[in-house]
Every structure is written in C-alpha cells, then in structure tokens.
Simulated scan of single mutants.
Amino acid sequence: MLINYLLIVLYIVAIGCSLYIIHRHKAYFHERFRKGTISIFMLAMLFFLAAYTFKMVIVLLFRAAAVFGFGSPRLAEWLLYGWTLAQMGTTAGLIALAWLTFTGKYDQFMVLRRMDKKIEEDYDNAST
C-alpha cells in the first residue's frame, strides 16, 4: 500500500531531522563537557532526541519488515524490546523537560568538573 511507503519516508525524514539537530548541537555539548558544566535543559533535550532517534529506527525496521517481508518472530521480539527501551528513554526525557518547563528553571547547570578533579586527586593521593 502507498501509506506504508509514505510512513517509511516520514520515518526516515524524522530520523534525519533528529540526527541533524544532534549534530548541529555537537559543538555546544563538546564545549560544555570540556568546561565541566552543562545546561540540564540541553542535556535533557539531547537525551530525549537520542532516545527518539533510536525509537524511530525501531519503528522504521518494524514497517520495513512488514512491507518488504523480511520479518520473523525473533526479529519482532527484539524490535519490541528495543521499542520498549526507546519508549522508556523518550518518556524519561519528556518527564525531565516537562519538569524543567513546569518549574521554569531553564538556567540550571550540572557541574561535572568537580567530580573529575576529585577522582584525579584521589588517584594522585593513592599513587604517592
């Protein structure tokens, strides 16, 4: 049916858009991780988009297996596990984004560098 092919195209476009957004924000995340602090809102967005992209790949495989006839009960089982994992990720990402939106705390940052320094100090103290 034509709708199956339309869905496959729409899934591919959704995956492409999501990967594009992640790619365009790569410099931001690289810089923030290097500096040791990151916006919690942006981190939640990254988590959501990564889970959403994985979810779209799973649904694309579901649809492609049905359309092109390469499905099997074993593949369907693994895709269902993947779908469940991806749904948990997207739900967790949405909950985090909704909470940040509800509280209006878009400017919260997570400090990562302190943990790194503590680990380095512990390592230096243990080796002397």
Results as ranks from 00 to 15, higher is better:
residue 1 M to N: 11
residue 1 M to R: 08
residue 1 M to H: 07
residue 2 L to A: 10
residue 3 I to Y: 08
residue 5 Y to M: 03
residue 5 Y to V: 00
residue 6 L to K: 13
residue 6 L to H: 05
residue 8 I to W: 00
residue 8 I to Y: 00
residue 10 L to I: 07
residue 10 L to Y: 03
residue 10 L to F: 09
residue 11 Y to P: 00
residue 12 I to W: 05
residue 16 G to Y: 11
residue 18 S to V: 06
residue 20 Y to Q: 04
residue 22 I to E: 10
residue 25 H to T: 12
residue 28 Y to K: 02
residue 29 F to M: 02
residue 29 F to G: 01
residue 31 E to G: 03
residue 31 E to A: 13
residue 33 F to L: 14
residue 34 R to G: 07
residue 36 G to T: 04
residue 39 S to Q: 02
residue 42 M to H: 15
residue 45 M to D: 15
residue 46 L to F: 07
residue 49 L to R: 08
residue 51 A to M: 03
residue 51 A to N: 06
residue 52 Y to D: 14
residue 52 Y to G: 01
residue 53 T to C: 06
residue 55 K to P: 01
residue 55 K to S: 15
residue 56 M to V: 05
residue 56 M to W: 07
residue 59 V to I: 14
residue 60 L to T: 12
residue 62 F to E: 12
residue 62 F to S: 06
residue 63 R to F: 04
residue 63 R to S: 12
residue 65 A to H: 02
residue 66 A to Y: 10
residue 66 A to I: 08
residue 68 F to A: 03
residue 69 G to E: 04
residue 69 G to A: 03
residue 74 R to P: 02
residue 74 R to Y: 07
residue 74 R to C: 07
residue 76 A to L: 09
residue 76 A to Y: 12
residue 77 E to I: 04
residue 79 L to A: 01
residue 79 L to R: 03
residue 80 L to C: 11
residue 81 Y to Q: 05
residue 81 Y to A: 06
residue 82 G to L: 03
residue 83 W to C: 05
residue 87 Q to R: 13
residue 87 Q to D: 09
residue 88 M to G: 07
residue 90 T to A: 01
residue 92 A to T: 08
residue 92 A to K: 02
residue 93 G to D: 00
residue 94 L to C: 09
residue 95 I to S: 00
residue 96 A to M: 11
residue 98 A to F: 03
residue 99 W to M: 14
residue 100 L to T: 03
residue 102 F to D: 02
residue 103 T to Q: 07
residue 103 T to H: 01
residue 103 T to G: 06
residue 107 D to G: 09
residue 109 F to S: 06
residue 112 L to V: 07
residue 116 D to W: 11
residue 117 K to T: 11
residue 121 E to A: 07
residue 122 D to R: 15
residue 122 D to Q: 11
residue 123 Y to P: 00
residue 126 A to W: 03
residue 127 S to D: 05
residue 128 T to I: 05
